[in-house]
């Protein structure tokens, strides 16, 4: 038996919007720790890891570890039927081939339930080791989204370089080149407007902008984004989900042949 009640149902709606274009089908894993997902995109160059900790749910019952295969497009269709202020409850019985999403309006005057078919997904689970990164950049998520969008109108790839001067995003295409430099800036009114750069050593890596733009669909989940870079590791683009967990995107770099 599984029953997870999430008062801030809009979080789950936003999570689905953030990942449904990157991954088609995925197993949601439910354990005492929380509700999680790890899935690769179909070309095996990007990975999404989601964790919604059990403490973040108003009610969290998960009698045994359960993995539920879902088509994310179908799940998104169902969650779009929930109001932004609705409380969402996810329910499943042991051995069942369906999951139920229950939506309650804030004043309890409307209750809806949507039952979705589960699917068997043979997914590869990857072991992601803890790593020390050469550079970690924290910046406003809207700023990062803006830069990725702007650069993708010029080129297909972005070079992200971190030096003591700041973080530079560069691209080139048929019509020309573009460079955006963000310097460390901690003298701001609100902490989420700061750009903070922790650099152990300079690093420069190249990534496909198409994936970066896809990751920025998580922008509504968090005011800030944390970008971790090392020359011998995939980039990690992390959006913290307030008091609940995170959504992390990993992307393998492009390298010179």
């Amino acid at each position: 038996m599984l029953e997870l009640r999430l008062v801030q149902g809009s979080l789950l709606k936003k999570v689905l919007e953030a990942i449904k274009d990157l991954v088609n089908d995925a197993n949601f894993d439910c354990s005492a720790t929380g509700f999680s997902l790890q899935a690769m995109d179909s070309s095996h160059v990007a990975l999404v890891a989601l964790l919604l900790r059990s403490e973040g749910f108003e009610h969290y019952r998960c009698d045994r570890n359960l993995s539920m295969g879902m088509n994310l497009n179908n799940m998104s269709k169902m969650l779009k039927c929930a109001g932004n202020d609705d409380i969402i409850t996810i329910k499943a019985d042991d051995g069942s081939d369906t999951v139920t999403f229950m939506f309650e309006s804030p004043n309890q005057d409307k209750i809806a339930d949507f039952e979705m078919k589960l699917m068997d997904i043979d997914s590869e689970h990857l072991g992601i080791p803890e790593a020390e990164y050469q550079a970690i950049v924290r910046m406003p998520s809207s700023e990062f989204a803006r830069i990725c969008k702007d650069l993708s109108s010029i080129g297909d790839t972005v070079v992200i370089s971190v030096t003591k001067e700041g973080v530079k995003f560069s691209t080139r295409g048929d019509i020309g080149t573009a460079n955006v430099v963000c310097r460390q800036n901690t003298t701001v009114d609100k902490p989420e407007e700061a750009t903070v750069i922790e650099m152990q050593e300079p690093v420069s890596l190249t990534f496909a902008l198409r994936y970066m733009n896809s990751f920025t669909k998580a922008t509504p989940l968090s005011g800030t984004v944390t970008i971790s870079l090392s020359s011998d590791l995939p980039i990690v683009v992390e959006y913290k989900i307030a008091e609940m967990g995170y959504i992390r995107f990993y992307l393998a770099p492009k390298i010179e042949d």
């Binding site: 990857l126 072991g127 011998d232 393998a252």
Partner: peptide
């Protein structure tokens, strides 16, 4: 020429 690396180069498939 830039080539795209796969994640399996970095992460272990469990």
């Amino acid at each position: 020429i830039l080539i795209q690396v796969y994640l399996s180069i970095y992460f272990l498939i469990l």
